[in-house]
């Protein structure tokens, strides 16, 4: 038996993955009887689509819910609320009701983590780690090994030199290549990359980014690329999604987000990048303070405690995503005509 690539079903206009109203809250237990004393609203109503063949970048500061979104997307944990549709089929439903089983979903969606050790068995040579999942899926060992060698070559590691090495015998960049090969082994359609180059040195980071671009082309992949590095996300993404305290505050085509950021948080985040020009140093930081705690997020707009444009309405009502045209949307009262903000509609399409 061989694993064949999964054919496209819904056609190019059908998003590969649609997440809607996704929520994940973590109870914080305390006291004598372990009662729930507080709730971390790690992901709090997240909706977005991943289009076929694109790279969707997700940015945001630590704790904003990027990795929790990733774990939900991978179904490494169950969401408290929300729906997931993969190429037109409900994820986790069985085939009779027009769904895709978790087992099949997990074959078609694979993940690469920041920590290059995390998903490799330290006691197995890397070719065995790569061949492991295909064998579980019924591929004959010899064939799985041959495929592992092909994949090692595809990620730039000569099989003759590297196939029998153990994870600790590789550099961080080489281990990350192995992880990418492992993620490719089941011929997935979607690869989720959570900070895949953040632990690498710059010279190695560039090698891995070039590789990711090549593989996407070669295997017709779709990527979700999570990173806190705004420059890397700009480089690799077609569309970008900005998160703040468990919610999506802005999303759109990469040019729109970077050239015409609408949400005050996105603007501040982009302005916080070091300038790379010692002659043009900033003197005032774009924002003060740290992101607040997701245990007790501010009422109304969650950004209002740090937002220079906050007004009364921002504390009263949660802004909804407003369309700015061309698939660009932002959740801010200034982008919503008639919201009651003195600058309402200023940003609208």
């Amino acid at each position: 038996m061989t694993l064949s690539p999964v054919p496209d079903r819904g056609g190019p206009a059908q998003p590969l993955l649609l997440l809607s109203g996704l929520k994940k809250h973590f109870p914080i237990r305390g006291g004598l009887f372990g009662a729930t004393v507080a709730t971390v609203r790690a992901v709090d109503g997240v909706t977005f689509a991943v289009r076929k063949g694109e790279t969707l970048g997700i940015v945001g500061e630590s704790g904003c819910g990027k990795s929790t979104t990733a774990r939900l997307l991978m179904r490494l944990m169950e969401p408290d609320a929300g729906r997931m549709i993969f190429d037109g089929e409900g994820v986790g439903q069985d085939a009779q009701t027009g769904g895709i089983t978790l087992k099949e979903y997990r074959r078609q969606v694979q993940m690469v983590f920041q920590d290059s050790y995390a998903s490799l068995n330290p006691r197995l040579p890397i070719e065995e780690s790569i061949a492991f999942a295909p064998k579980v899926h019924g591929i004959a060992p010899a064939e799985a090994r041959a495929r592992a060698h092909e994949l090692l070559a595809a990620v730039g590691l000569a099989p003759a030199t590297f196939a029998r090495r153990y994870p600790h015998e590789l550099s961080g960049g080489q281990r990350q290549r192995v992880n990418i090969a492992r993620a490719l082994a089941l011929q997935p359609r979607l690869i989720l990359l959570d900070e895949p180059v953040s632990a690498l040195d710059k010279s190695v980071e560039a090698q891995v980014l070039n590789l990711l671009v090549d593989l996407k082309e070669k295997f017709g992949l779709t990527y979700v690329f999570i990173s806190h590095d705004l420059n890397v996300v700009q480089y690799i993404s077609d569309r970008v999604l900005v998160m703040y305290l468990g919610q999506v505050v802005e999303q759109g085509p990469v040019e729109a987000i970077y050239d015409r950021p609408a949400h005050p948080y996105t603007r501040a985040l982009l302005a916080s990048r070091p300038s790379m020009d010692p002659g043009a140093r900033r003197t005032e930081p774009p924002l003060t303070g740290d992101p607040p705690n997701p245990i007790n997020p501010p009422s109304g707009c969650r950004f209002r405690t740090r937002c220079p444009f906050a007004e009364a309405v921002c504390a009263e009502r949660e802004p909804v995503a407003s369309d700015l045209g061309g698939g660009h949307e932002a959740a801010c009262h200034m982008a919503e005509p008639g919201s009651g903000h003195s600058q309402a509609g200023r940003l609208a399409a």
Partner: peptide, 21 residues
């Protein structure tokens, strides 16, 4: 190192890399 450091305006370009480690 400067060539390999991703910054604004490099979209679509192939990154220059330093081979090896």
């Amino acid at each position: 190192l400067l060539g390999a450091t991703v910054h604004g305006g490099m979209r679509g370009q192939r990154l220059t890399t330093i081979p090896g480690a």
